[in-house]
Design a protein around this nucleic acid. Sequence first.
DNA 1: GGGTAATCTAGAACACGTTCCAATGATGCA
DNA 2: TGCATCATTGGAACGTGTTCTAGATTACCC
Lengths: 201, 201
Amino acid sequence: MSDLTTNPRPPAAPPLTERQEARRRRILHTAAQLASRGGFDAVQMREVAESSGVALGTLYRYFPSKVHLLVATMQDQLQLMQSQLRKHPPSATDPGARVTETLMGTFRGLQREPQLAEAMVRALTFADRSVSAEVDQVSRLTAVLITEAMALDHPLSRDQLAAVRVIEHTWHSALVTWLSGRASIAQVRIDLETACKLLAE
Amino acid sequence: MSDLTTNPRPPAAPPLTERQEARRRRILHTAAQLASRGGFDAVQMREVAESSGVALGTLYRYFPSKVHLLVATMQDQLQLMQSQLRKHPPSATDPGARVTETLMGTFRGLQREPQLAEAMVRALTFADRSVSAEVDQVSRLTAVLITEAMALDHPLSRDQLAAVRVIEHTWHSALVTWLSGRASIAQVRIDLETACKLLAE
DNA sequence: GGGTAATCTAGAACACGTTCCAATGATGCA
DNA sequence: TGCATCATTGGAACGTGTTCTAGATTACCC
């Protein structure tokens, strides 16, 4: 929407050399590793830099803030999940049930590394406008995840698109409540199932 | 749920003296004022303390962190909105429409002080487990807001309770999306209306 | 290969949330 | 009234995200 004013990165980012690409991967890997034990607070920029064999200034050149770094980590993880899901698509027949199944599967994935999940989601919700392009990308990935789970042959109707948005809101907010210990996994499942009712017409 | 282990405040908090109550109000007022211009970042603990005529250590005795302070501010504002709404209840006849109307009204209230809204919502979503009791309270206030808008004479059915949860998720997440500039008010309204369809049976 | 611009490094410096401490003031009990 | 406990104050100190600088290294072009 306001890419022209708010988005300094994507417009013609110069392609990275091989060494640079490697550095970037190394940084993301270190971040995920530190997050996996310790969560958000354990991802300390000095330590990320040192463990990645990179100077602090360089780290900040690649990721302009800790939040940017962790949101990029989330993009990474989401893409991983996506390729997993394409290999093992959900089995239910009803679209709503498939979406629930898919999202709960993703949930279990996050559950396996709860600290990593905490770090990424805290970053995502704490992000201010300077990260909106990257956050938007995460949102887009999530929407794709949901619509692929529906596995329809038609393009989505207007109502279905609206429903997908609400499901995404529910997914995201339920995740936050679970991470802060205010809802159980069972409750999250119920909330997702409720939201998925909107897919039936 | 886990109040016994996670909630150090409410169990028998000693009643505050008048001077203490006044200090607390003063602090909350300063916080809201600083947040109103400047948002989250502008609420600096040293400045809150100084402007409230209170030592930094005292501020931290009343509110153990910046996030606690801003979540308390949100509780405050929500209660304000609640009393406003009780004076001017929504006019529509359909429960779903009344809920949308109420929430959009609240939204417009937040829109009038967008920086304050940003500060409170950032705090809310950034809160970790140490604030879960307070965040839970905010969630409860929101749920009350929604159910009062429905204005039913029966107690809520199981499905309605589930729907209220999804509406609350949607409200919360849509708020975040709007604050980060990734959705328009019109889009927020559509999302709320979509979620409110769940109230029809 | 030489020159130049971009990138990277090491580390100091700064900002703000948070903690700690010694001294002072308020409160309530015998 | 005197004493004991707790709250408040002012300010120093610490940790971590972020910025800045000067010099080394790398990448690219002729």
